[in-house]
Simulated assay, not measured.
Amino acid sequence: MAALSLATTAFKDDGWLAHNVLSKYNVLEYFSRSPFYVPPQRVGEEYVILEEQEPHLYVVQKQRTDPRTGRTAYLAVYYVLDQTVFQAAALGDVLGARAERLLCNLRDAFGACRELYEPSEVERSSSPASARVPPAPEKAEHQRATDRLLANFFNNR
């Protein structure tokens, strides 16, 4: 059975918070009231506080320690930020989103370079090289900026 992703869920228990001050001593009790908490189902499963920056941030990790080998497997990470519990994104999801954004930005950058460095077919066929109109000042500045960026990139490799 696939694990239910609660990546878009947030939990805050105002009733509990009205009678308690959240601290490193009771954050796991508070976390256990959230939909993220699943009681340990195997030997060695537990929730631990991985990081704390009182009173605003607590990082809770679900882990399982193999009793035979002592090796710990990290199952999930959650955080309590200003009394609200969230599930941390999986590393693969974060890297995938960043790679997607990088590819989109590269496509845009190459498109801009193409506009600056590849004259249109109309310009190539209709006007001799000596009769071409110089680029507009704004386009010329973009071209110089692109030249500098490309030069820095290739010189720093």
Rank of each mutant, 00 (worst) to 15 (best):
R98W: 12
Q87M: 12
Y78A: 11
T69I: 14
E115N: 09
A88V: 02
L103D: 12
V85Y: 08
S120E: 00
R114S: 15
R71V: 13
H56Y: 15
V94C: 07
A90C: 10
E45Q: 15
G111V: 08
R114C: 09
V77N: 08
V48I: 13
V85R: 07
R64T: 07
T65R: 15
A89F: 07
A73D: 15
E121M: 02
Q63S: 04
E121N: 01
Q63I: 14
A88D: 12
L75S: 05
P119S: 00
R64V: 09
K62A: 12
L95I: 08
Y78H: 11
R114G: 08
A73V: 11
E46G: 07
R101E: 14
H56D: 10
G96S: 14
E54T: 06
F86H: 15
L116R: 01
V85K: 06
V94F: 07
L91Q: 05
A90W: 02
C104V: 11
Y78L: 11
T72P: 07
L50G: 03
P40F: 00
D82T: 02
I49E: 02
Y74M: 04
A97F: 09
V80P: 05
S120R: 02
A89Q: 09
Y117Q: 10
K62V: 03
G44S: 05
G111Q: 09
R64D: 11
L103F: 14
A73K: 13
I49R: 02
V43T: 08
T69G: 06
D93M: 03
Y78K: 04
L75P: 01
E51D: 06
A89W: 04
T72E: 12
G92I: 02
T65M: 13
G111F: 10
L106Q: 15
P40Y: 00
A97K: 14
T69K: 13
P39W: 06
A88I: 01
V60E: 10
A89N: 05
Q63T: 06
P40C: 01
R114K: 10
A99C: 07
V48N: 04
L50H: 02
T84V: 13
E54N: 13
A88L: 05
L103M: 14
D93V: 00
V60N: 01
Q83C: 07
A76K: 12
L91A: 05
R101S: 10
V77H: 09
Q53V: 02
A88S: 14
E54P: 09
P119I: 00
N105Q: 13
Y74P: 00
R64H: 12
A109L: 13
L75V: 11
C113L: 14
E115F: 11
E118C: 10
L50P: 00
V77L: 03
Q41M: 06
N105P: 03
S120F: 01
F86C: 08
A90Y: 07
G70V: 09
L57A: 01
S120K: 03
P39M: 06
T65Q: 12
Q61F: 04
R107P: 00
V59L: 06
T84R: 01
V59Y: 13
P67I: 09
D66H: 12
A73N: 15
V80F: 03
A109K: 05
